[in-house]
Nucleic acid binder design. Structure first.
Lengths: 113, 113
DNA sequence: TGAACATATGAACAAGTATTCATATGTTTT
DNA sequence: AAAACATATGAATACTTGTTCATATGTTCA
């Protein structure tokens, strides 16, 4: 660990004071981490178009039912998606419009850059 | 892999057609993944307050110089930050305002939720 | 030129994670 | 009630990744 330069300590303290709390930063990192996986972002992109049952997602993503279910549970635990049962099938959808908006922001950032 | 229900194939095809390309989705996931780490998001939050040299970041984050440098190189490779040299020190800053905006979006999402 | 300083980087290790396989749960149909 | 279907879930494995340690690079100062 480097030494603290006296002339820097002011900047450090000021920055510390203005930054969001450690708790908020950690939670935000967790949020981005959940979105930062190709399978999960494909699921979210699909659900942006409307609710969909698990088997549809499997067909669409060309992935195992088990793999899809595992990722759905991660997304649900993070409250990014919700589900409802209709007969034998379970339909998933984005938890709120906010999620879709953040997704769009990321996508357009990539498209521009 | 589940069987394809004929009555679902229409929804699947339509969703596929409306979704962003595989390439875009993968790149977007990579972008979110980079932001989705506590150390890196702390660095970004600090740099949101203004440019800062590596040793300041080490003091602020209370982390090893090596660990900080490694994460800085990840952030730079993803074009989220840039740097300039001034004498012996190297100052890092956000690559553009867009990055700070996305960070804020994520933070406020967490603060609300 | 050599010493001191600031930062970068390669290798190694520990910890985390996405998928697979096997199986369990819950629903409908016969 | 049993069979068929849709989804969930635990364990195991292969892969990824963040940090540490040691060292290299590049700059300034004496």
């Amino acid at each position: 660990m480097a030494e603290i330069h006296p002339e820097h300590s002011h900047i450090i303290e000021q920055t510390k004071a203005n930054m969001p709390s450690e708790e908020i930063l950690v939670k935000t990192a967790e949020f981005f981490k959940v979105v930062g996986d190709p399978t999960r972002i494909r699921i979210l992109a699909a659900l942006s178009e409307g609710e969909m049952c698990v088997c549809c997602l499997c067909d669409l993503l060309e992935m195992t039912q088990s793999a899809v279910s595992h990722q759905l549970s991660v997304l649900k635990a993070a409250r990014l998606i919700k589900n409802r049962r209709e007969g034998k099938q379970i339909y998933y959808s984005l938890d709120d419009a906010h999620v879709g908006a953040i997704l769009c922001t990321g996508i357009s950032h990539v498209e521009e850059g």
